[in-house]
Design a protein around this nucleic acid. Structure first.
Lengths: 254, 254
DNA sequence: GCTTGCGCTTTCCGCTGCGTCAACTTCTAC
DNA sequence: GTAGAAGTTGACGCAGCGGAAAGCGCAAGC
């Protein structure tokens, strides 16, 4: 018993275009192809299609589905990993919804006396920063193991990685300056979400505990070479960042 | 004071590729272009870019951002609508996460005595269904206003619309059959999510209240012409669908 | 004067999962 | 014999860029 492509389409609720696509990418080849070039499917293909659709509903990618069905990987492991992705995405959306809510509120009561903080965007934020021998030597003296850890991490990065990393840090500093300019308290969920990102980014080089993370925030304020970079973007940003980091350390790292 | 593309990139934390893309799509044209073809940006462009990045973080599409910035539409309205989209997506993810969790559990304890329900995929589910004059006449007699409402909705549908609708209904029936085969109770969130979809789909033709929706479910069981379609897919599916609809009506429609 | 190198340019392919023509061939029915 | 349904293979399009290729302009060092 074999079915044509249109019959399978009707049976399964997908379009024939989709079936052809699945054939193209090798996800679901037909049982055989007639002399006229037509695709014919049999029972086994219908079962496979059913599996495919099941996993597709879970938002798994076709490539992953194929890997699973060809039993190259463990189903449960894939599902677990996928669930983690979904949860992360869900958390992201949650933060976004809150941020949007606040933005709407701000726009609606757009009449108050603004204490405008000016945000600059200097173009030489990181110029000659990490190759500074002074800072390097100082860190090596004061925290030898952190220096070693971060040295290894830095050595593993390519120039492109460094560039990407700098861009990400720059973008985050500007986002934070915007929160500060809007008068958002450092305890706000959106600011704390930024701190989570910041913490992750720091962890690329060095994994601080709560106290160390707070100490790092204080260093941003105390050390003029760090502070300068922050305050070049907006006055008081270093202090704002330190306070936000302290809250993050207290609520998430301890 | 003008900056080159690379300077702006460093200042804002985006790549020069992105800036070129924004120029391409008309979102952020440079202030002027030098004789050598190079893009040069000024203060106004930096401010616009800042606005763009703000809204981009909220996951707004570039097209919408452009519309807002060119003040063709109201910011607050766009944000409200966008928030609704995000909330809907969040609910979808929530359902998915639960479904995946259940799937994982099922896969892990894959040893119990299965009460296998066979799922068929007949290829002629809707053959000559809606043009049946008997059903049509009967509906017109029993519920004249619903008949009128759905007649208008059906008239507004193109042949393609009908095809899409049938495919969606077919796919949903099969998904439901899978839940039934897995022994999922009709009160389960995933099943109820399917009922929400079903209810929406019914609402294309006719907007039932709780009692009417329950009555529709009963009709699926009582009327052999409906019941046949369900049971062609899997035995007992009509009853399962009716029960799920009753739960939905009780919890969501009253 | 020539090379090297950086920064910039344009152009095009790639990703995801198909929808949607378009142009053609083949099967089926009257 | 011819119409119409159903099949085929391309190819473009969608969002938002990343990345590679190929070329131009300009400055420094030989």
């Amino acid at each position: 018993m074999a079915w044509s492509i249109a019959e399978v389409a009707r049976m399964s609720g997908v379009t024939s275009r989709t079936l052809r696509h699945y054939d193209e990418i090798g996800l679901l080849p037909p049982a055989w192809i007639g002399g006229n070039g037509h695709r014919y499917y049999e029972e086994a293909q219908l079962l496979r299609l059913q599996q495919i659709l099941l996993m597709r509903e879970l938002d798994l990618g076709l490539r992953e589905i194929r890997a699973v069905l060809d039993s190259q990987v463990d189903r449960v492991a894939v599902l677990r990993e996928h669930r983690q992705r979904l949860l992360a995405e869900q958390r992201r959306l949650e933060t976004l919804v809150r941020t949007i809510g606040r933005t709407i509120a701000e726009l609606e009561e757009d009449k108050d006396g603004q204490h405008m903080v000016k945000i600059n965007r200097p173009e030489n934020l990181f110029e000659g920063f990490e190759q500074s021998p002074e800072i390097d030597a100082e860190v090596r003296e004061r925290w030898p193991e952190h220096w070693e850890q971060s040295r290894q991490a830095a050595a593993a990065m390519t120039a492109e990685d460094m560039e990407r990393w700098q861009r990400a840090v720059t973008a985050q500093m500007i986002r934070l300056a915007e929160f500060m300019a809007a008068g958002t308290p450092v305890t706000d969920a959106a600011v704390q979400a930024e701190m989570e990102v910041h913490h992750q980014s720091v962890c690329r080089f060095w994994t601080p505990n709560a106290a160390a993370y707070k100490g790092l925030g204080q260093t941003y304020v105390d050390d003029p070479r760090f502070r300068e970079n922050y305050d070049k973007i907006a006055e008081g940003l270093a202090v704002y960042q330190r306070d936000a980091m302290a809250v993050y350390a207290d609520t998430r790292l301890s």
